[in-house]
Design a protein around this nucleic acid. Structure first.
Lengths: 310, 310
DNA sequence: ATAATTGATGCATGGATCGCAACAAATTCG
DNA sequence: CGAATTTGTTGCGATCCATGCATCAATTAT
């Protein structure tokens, strides 16, 4: 084998077409003629020895081969882009860049103090946060888009991802002050399930864990409201429209004017928050430093105690 | 900024020179003239806006910028090489995923040995089986959810689906040992229709074919029991609650403690088991390999002979 | 049925790259 | 001390290869 199979430009063009859909539109978008695009793809297909797109003159779709190449291409392009950015940062005499993906409930509740501590030691590192849902976090790290990721719940500890548990995050019941929770000392899941519920939307890790908890206890789970953002849930609850169950870490996100918290028992449900990174790849110096910092910090002190001195 | 800063070829050449040391030697080694190498490095330096090598006409050494770029270049080249290798492995059907949809009666009776054979040759392919009823199988393949599908009975050989017959699967009568079938040598559909019947639920391919057979013979079909799963049917029959008619391929699924089988004639009803895939689309390498395997195997030996010495 | 849109292709062109050869600097050797 | 040799660079002509335009073939929209 003499010449290597693909080039960054190939992958870029291929990726654009794979996500864009149509030859002409994509060709305009990236500033080349449609024929050039067609030929470039044809060349790439010939070099790879396989067809990447099904094209029947009207529709363009990826073949299975194209799908796998797309996944790989994104990885390569991401690392190349990161390398370019890091090199630029080096030229600009900066130390580097750190990209962290995380669930909104974690990025809001846990990251600020960690990042503050990190920046105290490494003031010249640009930090970028990617808020995303659970599987997006994993994918983002897998593909090298993010250096590190904060996840909750089970992560299949594959050979592509390394995982480390950081802390356990208990669910609590959240209600409006003066509302139905006011006179209680604690609350069981059964009792909660009979109150009007404000639930996070499907696909969020919070919702997944609540679903699992209820089905394990054989409780019906019929939310009165479904919202996408934690702050919205907090607003609904504080207006007395319902109650909800949230991990303690998320509580600082709720603009907690009118909210009260109660222990949620039978069972105690814990969300296991952890950090993930790409296995088998060299971490950037910034990522390594951040990981070391996280390892050396007692994170349980980061979880607020919502029950005052109760 | 239109053009991106570097290309894989740039990084390769740069990396060779960075580790190799001398222009002429490296140029020979990678099969290009010294002048070409010199220009390529000069272009790269210009695009990056910094000098990468100290060259004083006798020695070549990396600048600090060159050192950091070398580290980054190795990362990028590694992921690119890994991606290439992974893609090659995928093309060679050494890695990847194969999703097969199939009727439960086929997936249980026919697939295990086929998949075992396939995995012997392609050990690192993840195989996923979608058990589903007949029309779900076709739909799953049509929509690209499954690569291949095992079906029984007539499949409209549309322009979206390619079909290939694999084997003919005769129906036999199934009864309890010591029961009403014990003293018979064979059994006609007319006789069967007058016995208490355990039937598969509507929507299953087995039920469809039995309905068709009976209506063709102008026989009434009034099942005493209707069950959804083959194992359940087997359990009912083995308890002497009734008899049933099943294709031979399904028999291994019945935990056949107490069952006897008899030829079912007048007419002999055959279920035509076949394999389907998407027409006009490129099959994944794993699917192609599996299809080749299936084509090369004499599947009639896979159908057990239930009439051993009984 | 006609028009329009889409991807593929033939052909000529232009820009980029390459190899050869000459050159400048530096080391080696007579 | 000076000529020869080695090393990286550069000028120039040749070459190659991707591109763009125009056109074709196929399919859909009206």
């Amino acid at each position: 084998m003499d010449r290597n199979k693909f080039d960054l430009e190939d992958l870029r063009v291929f990726s654009s077409l794979a996500t864009g859909g149509r030859f002409r539109a994509v060709a305009d978008e990236i500033g080349m003629s449609a024929s050039a695009l067609s030929r470039q793809i044809a060349r790439l297909e010939e070099r790879l020895g396989t067809r990447l797109f099904n094209r029947d003159t009207r529709n363009v779709s990826l073949t299975p081969q194209g799908h796998t190449l797309l996944r790989l291409a994104q990885q390569v392009l991401n690392t190349a882009a990161n390398a370019g950015a890091e090199f630029d940062a080096y030229l600009a005499a900066r130390r580097g860049r750190l990209t962290i993906a995380g669930l909104p409930s974690v990025t809001a509740g846990l990251l600020p103090s960690l990042v503050a501590r990190f920046l105290a030691r490494h003031p010249d590192i640009d930090v970028q946060i990617n808020d995303a849902l659970s599987d997006s976090v994993i994918r983002s790290v897998e593909q090298g888009e993010s250096d590190l990721g904060f996840t909750a719940g089970a992560v299949e500890n594959s050979d592509r991802i390394s995982f480390r548990t950081l802390l356990s995050d208990p669910f609590v019941a959240v209600g409006a002050a003066g509302g139905i929770l006011e006179d209680r000392d604690s609350c069981t899941w059964r009792e909660l399930s009979e109150m009007p519920l404000v639930a996070m939307a499907r696909g969020t890790s919070v919702r997944l864990l609540i679903d699992a908890a209820c089905s394990q206890q054989n409780l019906p789970f019929r939310p009165r409201f479904e919202v996408a953002h934690l702050a919205t849930a907090g607003a609904f609850v504080s207006q007395g429209l319902g109650v909800t169950a949230l991990p303690v870490l998320t509580l600082p996100v709720l603009s907690s004017g009118n909210l009260i918290y109660r222990r949620l028992v039978e069972p105690e449900v814990l969300r296991h928050v952890g950090i993930i990174w790409r296995a088998g790849h060299v971490l950037s110096p910034a990522a390594t430093a951040f990981l070391d910092l996280v390892r050396g910090v007692d994170l349980s002190s980061e979880v607020p105690d919502p029950f005052g001195t109760g």
